[in-house]
């Protein structure tokens, strides 16, 4: 249940604004890939192109190829809805559906698509997803309570459970811990470690220690100046990026001497 992603010469635009230029990289299956870089360098934008969420923004468009196990996500006969079923996403702010209970939130990906399933299948699926998100023991007695009643960290893990309940190939996480306290962050990081055994995980983070802790490979994005497009400076094994980066810009950013 995980796929390799090859990105070739990807250019990303908002209308006429060139947001990210000429990104090529390989994202390995069953690994955690982290993107770091200063604000506005396009790492979140880039992440959103991997499940075609970028084009939801008015004026958003993409040039180049994103190949998932050889199939181009941006070829004309691919439905973005199908892409998003294969590539799940967790957002910066926990966003459980406020009108739904915890259980309904977990099953939202199936229920919203009006998949019919027996209640025993639903229970089983719900439990598996919640266990997969390390949340089961905390919420198993209140599955019918609203998801918005949970703490921030629990809500975020609920969102992760919701994402893995549709059994995607890849999970994208856009700064999943930036709205969480250190303890909840730890819980989510542990979870990312476990997810790696089943999924391809891509995470954007502002927290370099986090990138160093959770990821196998790290990509550093930068931009030359405000208004200029962001670009991938270098990408390598996390160990190398943090201990012996190949580029001066990476070293400056990691050691806090940038700009």
């Amino acid at each position: 249940m995980s796929k390799r992603i090859d990105i070739n010469d990807l250019n990303i635009y908002y209308g006429s604004f060139h947001a990210v230029k000429d990104v090529s990289m390989v994202i390995e299956p069953k690994s955690v890939t982290a993107f770091i870089g200063p604000s506005g360098c396009g790492k979140s934008t880039f992440l959103r192109t991997l499940n075609r969420m970028h084009e939801v923004v008015p004026g958003g468009r993409v040039e180049g190829d994103v190949l998932m196990d050889g199939r181009n996500l941006y070829s004309r006969d691919v439905d973005p809805v199908d892409v998003r079923r294969e590539v799940g996403m967790v957002f910066q702010r926990p966003n459980p559906f406020p009108t739904m209970s915890i259980k309904e939130n977990v099953l939202a990906g199936l229920r919203l698509n009006s998949k019919r399933m027996s209640s025993s299948t639903a229970d089983e699926l719900c439990e598996r997803a919640l266990r997969g998100a390390n949340l089961w023991s905390e919420v198993k007695d209140r599955l019918d309570r609203p998801g918005s009643g949970l703490s921030g960290g629990q809500q975020q893990r609920l969102c992760i459970a919701r994402a893995i309940a549709v059994q995607p190939e890849v999970i994208l996480m856009d700064e999943p811990c930036s709205a969480l306290d250190p303890i909840s962050t730890l819980a989510v990081e542990d979870l990312i470690h476990e997810l790696k055994s089943d999924y391809t995980v891509v995470i954007v983070t502002h927290n370099m220690q986090q990138a160093a802790r959770v990821s196998d490979r790290t990509g550093f994005f930068n931009l030359e100046a405000t208004g200029k497009p962001g670009h991938l400076v270098e990408m390598d094994d996390t160990q190398r990026i943090f201990n012996n980066p190949g580029k001066k810009a990476t070293e400056d950013y990691i050691s806090g001497r940038f700009g």
């Binding site: 957002f91 990906g109 919701r162």
Partner: peptide
Amino acid sequence: NELREASLALGVP
């Protein structure tokens, strides 16, 4: 908007 994105990202039309 986060709710719309959450739903779209689950592969809901």
